[in-house]
C-alpha cells in the first residue's frame, strides 16, 4: 500500500520507511513536520498516513492536531498516530471522530515489527489499532466500573484486545484459543455490558470503546 509519513526524527523516518518497504509497502512521502501534511495527503491520496504527535514548530502536539484536522477534512483517509507517550486525553480527541481507520500506538511498538505492520494494515483497511496502554487507561478511567467488574479475567482480556482493534481471529491467535471460544466470550461480554450484538467487527470495537469511554 502507499503510505505518507510525518515524523521529525530523521532516524525514525528512515527506519520506518525501511521497515515498511521490507513488507512491500511504499512510502510515497516522508515529511519532517506537520504543517504541510494536509496538502501532501491531498496530493498523494495515500492508503495510510502515519503521524508522530510531537513535531516542529512547537514540538508539542501538532501531529495530533494535524491528524484530527485530516480526519475532519478527509474522513476516508486512515490515520495511524504514533507517540512517545500515550495519553487518554489524546485518544479521546482522536476517537471522537469515529473509530474507522484510526490508530494510536506508542512509538516503541515499531520495535515489534510484525505486529506494527499488522496494525498499520488494519488501520488502512478501515479498522482500529489502539495501544494496549491506551486501552488500559480507558478502562481505568471508565465511569462504569461495576459492570466491568462483573467480567471474568478472561473476558476482560478479550475485551481489552477487542478495544485495541483486533479481529476475533487475531484475538484467538493472541490468546491461543479457538475462534469459537472467543465468540462465546464476546457474546457473554456484550450481554453483561448490555450492548447490542453486532456481526461487524468495526462496529463492535466502536461499541466497546463508546462503552468504556462512558459516552
Amino acid at each position: 500500500m502507499r503510505i505518507v509519513i510525518a515524523e521529525d526524527s530523521v532516524l525514525l523516518r528512515e527506519g520506518i520507511t525501511r521497515l515498511l518497504a521490507e513488507y512491500g509497502h511504499e512510502v510515497v512521502a516522508a515529511e519532517g513536520d506537520a504543517t504541510r501534511l494536509l496538502a501532501v495527503v491531498t496530493y498523494h491520496q495515500p492508503d495510510l498516513v502515519i503521524v508522530d504527535v510531537r513535531m516542529p514548530p512547537t514540538h508539542t502536539d501538532e501531529g495530533l492536531r494535524a491528524a484530527v484536522e485530516l480526519r475532519t477534512q478527509r474522513p476516508a483517509t486512515p490515520v495511524l498516530v504514533l507517540s512517545q507517550y500515550v495519553e487518554e486525553r489524546y485518544a479521546t480527541e482522536l476517537l471522537a471522530l469515529g473509530t474507522v481507520g484510526v490508530g494510536y500506538l506508542l512509538k516503541e511498538r515499531v520495535a515489534d515489527v510484525r505486529e506494527f505492520v499488522e496494525a498499520a494494515c488494519r488501520v488502512a483497511d478501515g479498522g482500529t489499532a489502539l495501544d494496549p496502554e491506551v486501552v488500559s487507561q480507558l478502562f481505568a478511567r471508565s465511569r462504569r466500573r461495576d459492570p466491568l467488574a462483573s467480567l471474568t479475567p478472561r473476558e476482560r482480556e478479550v475485551l481489552s484486545l477487542m478495544a485495541q482493534g483486533l479481529s476475533n481471529l487475531a484475538v484467538a491467535e493472541r490468546l491461543v484459543v479457538s475462534a469459537g471460544a472467543v465468540e462465546k466470550h464476546i457474546s457473554s461480554i456484550f450481554t453483561k455490558l448490555d450492548l447490542a450484538p453486532s456481526e461487524h467487527e468495526h462496529r463492535r470495537v466502536l461499541a466497546v470503546l463508546r462503552y468504556v469511554a462512558g459516552e
Partner: peptide, 21 residues
C-alpha cells in the same frame, strides 16, 4: 531526551526487531 536518546532507542529496538524477523 525526547529528541535524542528516546528516538535512538526506538530506532535501535526497531532494527533489532527487523533483525529478529
Amino acid at each position: 531526551l525526547h529528541d535524542g536518546a528516546q528516538q535512538r532507542l526506538v530506532s535501535l529496538a526497531m532494527n533489532l526487531g527487523m533483525a529478529k524477523e
